[in-house]
Design a protein around this nucleic acid. Structure first.
Lengths: 340, 340
DNA sequence: TTGTACGCGTTATCAG
DNA sequence: CTGATAACGCGTACAA
């Protein structure tokens, strides 16, 4: 029960393998007689022939495969994006390979190398800190890729991102407009530019509203010790006389961890503290208070990224394109105005 | 800046491509002189040579790729499993391709065909209802695959599953032991055997405890209209005089939807109703009451599946292996005993 | 319509 | 014993 190859079909149909190839790829262009077409189709059907993509790729130098590098496919943000990218890719005829970097340069490079060794036609990448060298190599090798979610300032590449600075500014403004004066941002301790922009949007909004920007205004969390850092940080924040009256989480994982802690601390939301979270996850739906959150246009991000990559694969000389999509603030009870 | 092939390396090193291949694959077996080895390695290094896996696969008939078919990669259960399988696969030298079936036979078959066309070495599959024909074809073609999560009774294949019946029985027993008498199971309206087993475990436990098993004991939900069905069903259950005092959700998505509804209905947990959910998701962590849940050994499932598939790929004649791993009940406040 | 070179490695076989 | 030659895997696409 071995696989049937084009040769078997040609033999059975009594024609050349070339004819079989033409017929099965609809490259008929009136070159081939209807009779031959029928014979070939019949033989292929009867044998259950399916072309070997490996052989095809070897010749055509295209695999119709794209690689997706995310931080962690188990993170809802990335699994949702991955799902959209999977659909879009399939629709455009590509197969998707997914890899998780864990924000680790070594793993990241390993994935990129693996993908390149497998001759992917292109990549969609959420790059990690320190991946510059690796990505520069890819640019030299002319392998198309598109950034999503984040970027590296030193790498000039196609990207689909959201208005991180502006939306953070807007969130902060919203909290301040609700009468909050002692805002705290929960952010990762990171060099990733898109996250820094979220922090900057927050800081600038504070400044613009003449609110004090102190060392305690931003709580920096180590991504590898979220719960620990959140616990310690919140214990500190809420032990002080000057407790926060608004908290803005800059990621879904920080929000989940922080909200758990707020539950334990018995903090009343929104009475004591207003809360806004970045990203959207089903976890928010089970929180006792309807949460205000920043909704990223995941579907648009995924579709745009695939479209851009697809175009780039078809024409490697396309100019670099940088797309900024708008995330939007979805307000709910958790960030209601402060009652006097 | 085109890719460097083995030919380039051979030329640069001044040896034949065969020698390059031998050296780079450590198939030296004392056949090749140290001098040649060094020349080849140096040339390969300098040119930055990386073998083309496509060409390699064409010859060796192995792609070192495995396909994973899940219902939906955006579902935390599957994205967590996928992450584990990704790691295990990589460690064993395989690349993972993931596809989502949406529980739809057509999509499922499309994925399987795509994977086979891409010559995957094997597959890990969460099969959907009605996929029998498709899977039988694969067995005839001798393409190795391993079921996870669920199975089709008509298909005799390798599988890694959990003790669905027993754990459901145990959960039910636990609720009854807590003084609950009016239990309701929230289940999918499905023919999938593993889910039916969960229902059967529940029913048998009721019977064994001489509790009434009525039409209202199981609320069947259409997977494509979870929120609607849950809303309607719960409205009905709680409008009745004889309201439930315990609810067992048979999946994470059912639990999230149901818990949202219980919040809206202002049902007190565990005072009015005890709750146990299947699966584990971060959403549970934000619920106001610590949730009792059934924890599946995801890591074991993933590792076992990859190991079994790997073995099967290496030896297609291995006997069929059916592994049952134990899920365990993790009890918390949501299913505390009823107070008198 | 068909013959066949080609894409890029692997490996059996052959020559030195 | 070392290393080169060439067949092979399976389609594609050009020349004939």
């Amino acid at each position: 029960m071995k696989k049937v190859s084009i040769k078997d079909v040609a033999q059975k149909a009594g024609v050349s393998i070339a004819s079989v190839s033409y017929v099965l790829n609809n490259k008929v262009d009136s070159r081939i007689s209807k009779e031959t077409v029928d014979k070939v189709k019949k033989a292929a059907e009867e044998l259950g022939y399916r072309a070997n993509n490996i052989a095809k790729s070897l010749k055509t130098q295209r695999t119709y495969t794209i690689g997706l590098v995310v931080a962690d496919i188990a993170n809802p943000y990335f699994s949702q994006i991955a799902r959209i990218i999977e659909n879009e890719s399939k629709q455009k005829g590509y197969t998707l390979i997914i890899g998780s970097s864990d924000e680790n340069v070594q793993k990241f490079e390993g994935l990129i190398n693996m993908f390149c060794d497998r001759q992917v036609d292109g990549l969609i990448i959420a790059p990690v800190e320190g991946a510059e060298d690796c990505l520069q190599k890819m640019q030299k090798q002319n392998i198309p890729f598109v950034f999503i979610d984040r970027y590296l300032p030193k790498i000039n590449a196609d990207i689909v991102q959201v208005n991180n600075y502006a939306i953070s500014f807007e969130v902060t403004q919203h909290l301040i407009a609700g009468g909050r004066k002692n805002l705290v941002l929960i952010a990762y301790d990171t060099l990733l530019q898109h996250l820094i922009e979220r922090t900057n949007g927050f800081k600038d909004a504070l400044i613009q509203n003449n609110l004090e920007l102190s060392d305690n205004s931003v709580l920096y969390i180590d991504k590898d010790a979220i719960d620990e850092d959140v616990n310690r940080g919140f214990d500190f924040l809420f032990s002080d006389a000057n407790t926060p009256d608004a908290i803005f989480f800059t990621s879904n994982k920080l929000a989940v961890s922080g909200l758990k802690k707020l539950m334990k601390l018995n903090v009343k939301i929104p009475q004591d503290v207003a809360v806004v979270a970045f990203d959207e996850t089903e976890a928010y739906e089970l929180f006792s208070v309807p949460l205000s959150f920043v909704r990223q246009p995941l579907s648009d991000i995924g579709k745009t990224a695939v479209r851009m990559l697809h175009n780039k694969i078809d024409d490697h000389l396309l100019p670099i394109d940088k797309v900024v999509l708008n995330a939007e603030l979805h307000t709910a009870a958790s960030s209601s105005p402060k009652q006097a």
